[in-house]
């Protein structure tokens, strides 16, 4: 399985590359009034309106962890990246099984992350279940972990992250 990796604070995270549509530099987005705080806003990319999730807030991090270094530098100026996800429809065209099991969302969504990593080829057998004592991230959001060059790569369960875990189970 190919995994696109990135960092969030000191966490090393990864997402199945088949679920990723594209990655781009973080840009100004339109806030959505009344939405939960982990919804950063709406973004228009080439005519597609994308809902941006602030992954840090979604994991329940505090303000200091979301914006390290206090108020220094506005969030807009801080270098971030948007990981835009494919829609269920798009994944369906590539891998029907994957779409049915891992991709319940119909609308275009994106995750805001800190730094980009690389593309890693992970052997499925090496994927371990989430350890109980993993801090800063709830086990619900983890698909599995891989020990990688003395660091732990956490592969995200995007459906749960987006809060759609129960919908697609049916």
């Amino acid at each position: 399985m190919l995994v696109s990796t990135f960092t969030l604070g000191d966490l090393y995270l990864g997402i199945n590359i088949l679920l990723v549509r594209e990655i781009n530099r973080s840009m100004e987005c339109t806030p959505v009034p009344g939405a939960p705080d982990y919804i950063r806003g709406m973004l228009n990319i080439r005519g597609r309106v994308i809902t941006l999730f602030d992954l840090k807030r979604r994991l329940g991090w505090s303000d200091d962890e979301v914006e390290p270094g206090g108020g220094e530098g506005s969030p807009a100026k801080r270098k971030r990246y948007n990981v835009i996800m494919k829609t269920r429809h798009e994944v369906m065209r590539i891998n029907q099984n994957l779409a049915e099991t891992k991709c319940p969302w119909e609308d275009p969504v994106g995750l805001v992350v800190d730094q980009l990593g690389d593309v890693r080829d992970i052997v499925d057998d090496n994927i371990l279940p989430p350890p109980a004592n993993l801090r800063r991230i709830s086990a619900d959001f983890i698909h599995g972990v891989v020990e990688f060059e003395r660091s732990l790569l956490v592969i995200l369960d995007v459906a749960n992250v987006l809060g759609l875990g129960h919908d697609y189970a049916e």
């Binding site: 190919l2 696109s4 590359i17 088949l18 990723v20 549509r21 594209e22 990655i23 781009n24 530099r25 990246y81 590539i94 980009l116 690389d118 593309v119």
Partner: peptide
Amino acid sequence: VLALNARIVAAR
């Protein structure tokens, strides 16, 4: 970023 996107496209 471009290279990364290229790999995403290649993966598809």
